[in-house]
Amino acid sequence: MGTLNQLVIGASIGAVLLLAALGLTFTFGQMGVINMAHGEFIMAGAYTAYVLQPLAGDQAVIVALPVAFAVGGVLGLILERLIIRRFYGRPLDTLLLTFGISLILQQAARDIFGAPNVQVDAPGWLTGGVDLAGVRIAYNRLFILVLAIGCVVAISLYLSKLRQGRRMRAVMQNRQLAAVSGVATGRVDQATFFIGSGLAGVAGVALTLIGPVGPTLGTAYIVDAFLVVVAGGLGQLKGAVIAAFVLGVLNSFVEFWTANGASFAKVVVFAVIIAFLQFRPQGMFVLKSRALT
């Protein structure tokens, strides 16, 4: 029973990882921008739910999903327009820059909302859970799982069915060729950044259900999110999904089987990723292209 429970727990850890990493598959995976402020967009999404709470009551989490997408997206757009676009092709500079911006955003949140954590009430129908064959499934975990799956489906439809999505893939696969084919690559970059950052906002709303809401919320997830994207293969949605769930389940079982396992599970997960990248430095999946890169 404990083992089966851990499988469910692993899946829900995976869903959280995936949700936090989804936005990065766009900005980092597709565009190659290492945006350390991504975690702060997650944080902004969480605070969006908090701000909406007086208006929407205990349904704030639901109302906040689209609003947080817009908030995260606009923040990302501002960052891209003002700063990041001036640093394309300079990953180290971008890294330092966005790291500084993440500190600024954290302190801004501290000044606006105060240093202590705030509380976002979960909707009544998301508290509690159901026991299925001795396995406890919490409704809020189920909600995060459904939300993650929903986001993945929406993204893959966008990338395959919509013209904008196809342009995004074209720019990612070969920027020059896309440009000479008449794709406004600057416009596409903006859209990519908007969506990637917006997804961070959505993740932030979901995370209010299980964790703390405070200025440093994003820092708890940013490294794991990058790991998922790197292990899955840059820009590979399928890879990110598989990597998130494999890491989640691995983490939950190692922690369960070892005494005082929380620290040990982290060690094992990191070791597995390092070993894996030794054999497949490009991640699980890789884009096949004839470009000379």
Binding site: I9, I13, T216, F256, N260, A262, S263
Partner: peptide, 21 residues
């Protein structure tokens, strides 16, 4: 039982499962 988690950990379902057992 005795369990420690790194500072800042936000994932406690496994420990909660251990508590239940």
């Amino acid at each position: 039982g005795e369990e420690y988690t790194p500072l800042g950990t936000t994932e406690y379902s496994t420990i909660v499962n251990k508590l239940g057992q």
